[in-house]
Amino acid sequence: MDLNTVLEVCDGREQAPWRPGDAWLAGGTYLFSEPQPRLRRLRDLSRMGWEPLARLPDGSLEIAATCTIAELSRFGKALDARAAPLFEQCCRAFLASFKIWNMATVGGNLCNALPAGPMISLAAALGGRCALLAQDGSRRVVPAAGFVTGPGTNDLAEGELLRSIILPARALAARTAFRQASLSALGRSGVLVIGVADPLDGSLAVTITASTVRPFRLLFPQPPAATALRAAIEGAVDEAEWYDDLHGLPAWRRHMTLRLAEEIRSELTASGGR
């Protein structure tokens, strides 16, 4: 879609002051999907030169905000880590054509903050952290599970930029379990639940997305009983926080979340799991 209110596209490396009507441009799959009447200038990140994926000295993984879904998928398939299958599972949770896969970015999916965004699910489930850059060059880091604050809203301040997502090495070595539900075979996720079992301390993290207005990551020092897991989910998610749109009613989302969370708990607590 043409953005006929945009008057200028500038290089994202330029130190031009931020002004009303500015927006960061990465893959552009959202920006060009519908009218954006408030926009006047796009600040293009395509020339930033950020390495899409890099292993840091401590073994953690840094995913640049400009990394495409296709690049992440290829990396996940070659990754020698126990949690590697989760990368492809989340990439495949996209309702997207190959064109979107090759243009859409990991950072864009997080910043767009749709409840069904599977890069949000991946980053939150693995205990990721979001590195944010302000216009004055200062940097802050926030948990990925708290970066998305609601449907279409996030923790970015005016002019602030999501630079990268950092996944800890410990999470990459964890056992994972993935469950997704949609109202149709190729429909947008109505429920997405991920379990991550820490091999070192035996803890279990259950992350709920798509069915709720924001991510919920519940951490248990030891795998809980079925009744305790259900009580924890119902205690964490208020009635108003079950998402309601044409991809699923809140009652259905709640029911399926509880069901899939129990499946994950059973899978990750069974002896000889993946």
Score class of each variant (00 low, 15 high):
residue 111 C to P: 00
residue 229 L to K: 05
residue 124 A to D: 02
residue 198 D to W: 03
residue 156 L to Q: 01
residue 251 A to C: 10
residue 123 A to H: 00
residue 147 F to M: 01
residue 102 N to G: 07
residue 271 S to I: 11
residue 125 A to M: 03
residue 177 A to P: 01
residue 269 T to D: 07
residue 206 V to S: 05
residue 199 P to W: 10
residue 76 G to M: 02
residue 264 I to Q: 09
residue 260 L to T: 06
residue 42 L to Y: 06
residue 199 P to N: 13
residue 187 G to W: 04
residue 226 A to I: 08
residue 256 M to S: 02
residue 147 F to S: 02
residue 156 L to V: 02
residue 166 I to T: 08
residue 206 V to L: 15
residue 142 V to Y: 00
residue 185 A to V: 09
residue 245 D to Y: 04
residue 7 L to F: 11
residue 242 W to G: 04
residue 10 C to S: 13
residue 79 L to E: 08
residue 137 G to A: 11
residue 237 V to C: 06
residue 246 L to Q: 13
residue 249 L to C: 12
residue 44 D to T: 14
residue 74 R to Q: 15
residue 167 L to F: 00
residue 253 R to Q: 14
residue 7 L to K: 15
residue 108 G to A: 04
residue 37 P to N: 06
residue 94 F to V: 08
residue 149 T to C: 00
residue 52 P to N: 11
residue 180 Q to R: 13
residue 25 L to W: 01
residue 141 V to F: 08
residue 23 A to E: 13
residue 70 A to N: 01
residue 175 R to W: 06
residue 191 V to R: 04
residue 245 D to R: 14
residue 106 V to W: 06
residue 98 F to M: 09
residue 17 P to K: 03
residue 225 A to C: 14
residue 235 G to H: 11
residue 42 L to P: 10
residue 188 R to G: 06
residue 5 T to D: 07
residue 164 S to Y: 02
residue 98 F to V: 15
residue 72 L to Y: 04
residue 120 I to T: 12
residue 22 D to C: 13
residue 188 R to A: 13
residue 130 C to M: 08
residue 168 P to A: 01
residue 28 G to Y: 06
residue 167 L to V: 13
residue 19 R to H: 15
residue 262 E to R: 11
residue 244 D to C: 11
residue 263 E to V: 12
residue 74 R to P: 07
residue 91 C to F: 04
residue 167 L to H: 05
residue 112 N to A: 12
residue 47 R to P: 10
residue 65 A to R: 02
residue 176 T to N: 11
residue 1 M to H: 13
residue 223 P to N: 05
residue 184 S to L: 07
residue 168 P to Q: 07
residue 165 I to Y: 00
residue 165 I to D: 01
residue 66 T to H: 03
residue 217 R to I: 03
residue 79 L to T: 03
residue 99 K to A: 12
residue 209 T to I: 13
residue 79 L to A: 15
residue 245 D to F: 02
residue 9 V to W: 03
residue 264 I to P: 01
residue 181 A to H: 11
residue 50 W to G: 05
residue 29 T to C: 10
residue 246 L to K: 14
residue 252 W to L: 14
residue 248 G to M: 08
residue 143 P to E: 05
residue 58 D to G: 07
residue 136 D to P: 12
residue 255 H to A: 10
residue 87 F to H: 02
residue 183 L to E: 13
residue 80 D to F: 05
residue 59 G to S: 14
residue 192 L to F: 04
residue 59 G to R: 00
residue 266 S to D: 10
residue 231 A to Y: 10
residue 196 V to R: 10
residue 113 A to R: 08
residue 211 S to K: 08
residue 199 P to L: 15
residue 31 L to F: 11
residue 30 Y to K: 12
residue 156 L to A: 08
residue 16 A to I: 14
residue 273 G to C: 15
residue 256 M to F: 09
residue 164 S to G: 04
residue 130 C to W: 03
residue 225 A to K: 09
residue 238 D to I: 11
residue 243 Y to G: 14
residue 18 W to V: 07
residue 188 R to N: 08
residue 52 P to L: 08
residue 72 L to W: 04
residue 216 F to M: 15
